[in-house]
């Protein structure tokens, strides 16, 4: 067996997941992990699969594309080898939530993300909530992993400075506070 990552992207419709997973069943692929979302009617899914050695990456791409096409489902497919481990596993990290709120315009996410990149901070989830707080207002929510060795005060100052330049109100909070306030933890 070898581990592959298979991504599917296209217009959402009923039967998409059934078709994709049936093709994996047919090719004797075992689904290890899956994440799926729909954004503005667009379907996107990433599957981590254990594929039989006899199924090469090119063969898997071919099988999935052909199968979807025969079922009349218009999805783009990418299959690539899946690397072991995650970025954050290599160092001790703390989860933080950074929000940026203000008038929307192009380049805001890029500017904020550059600060994270400069500090070696990984964005694990990113959400843009348009219209929050009024017309043409946007709230960007970055769920990030911050290395424990990071000087949090410096990061906060840089983010706030970038926010001021872009007319954005910035907050930096440990993620636990959001969970503590809203969730009852399973026993």
């Amino acid at each position: 067996m070898h581990k592959l990552s298979a991504s599917f992207l296209g217009r959402d419709c009923t039967g998409v997941v059934a078709c994709v997973t049936s093709l994996m069943e047919k090719t004797h692929c075992d689904i290890v992990e899956v994440s799926q979302t729909i954004l503005a009617g667009e379907f996107a899914a990433i599957f981590i699969i254990n594929a039989p050695d006899s199924l090469s990456i090119d063969a898997a791409m071919r099988e999935f594309s052909t199968g979807l096409s025969e079922a009349g489902i218009d999805l783009s497919v990418i299959v690539r080898p899946a690397a072991e481990g995650t970025w954050s596993a290599s160092q001790q990290c703390e989860p933080f939530v950074v929000t940026a709120h203000g008038p929307d315009r192009p380049g805001l996410i890029a500017a904020m993300s550059r600060v994270f990149a400069r500090h070696g901070i990984n964005i694990e989830n990113l959400k843009a909530i348009l219209g929050e707080g009024g017309d043409n207002q946007a709230l960007f929510v970055f769920e990030v992993k911050v290395p424990e060795s990071m000087d949090l005060g410096r990061l906060r100052r840089e983010l706030i400075a970038e926010g001021q330049r872009l007319d954005l109100l910035i907050s930096v909070q440990h993620r636990d506070i959001f969970e503590a306030v809203h969730r009852i933890q399973p026993i």
């Binding site: 939530v97 709230l139 769920e143 907050s171 993620r175 959001f178 969970e179 306030v181 809203h182």
Partner: peptide, 16 residues
């Protein structure tokens, strides 16, 4: 992953 409501509600409690 946090939901929109969880984030917005917490921010409102703090800011407003």
């Amino acid at each position: 992953m946090l939901t929109e409501r969880e984030v917005i509600s917490t921010l409102n409690m703090l800011r407003n």
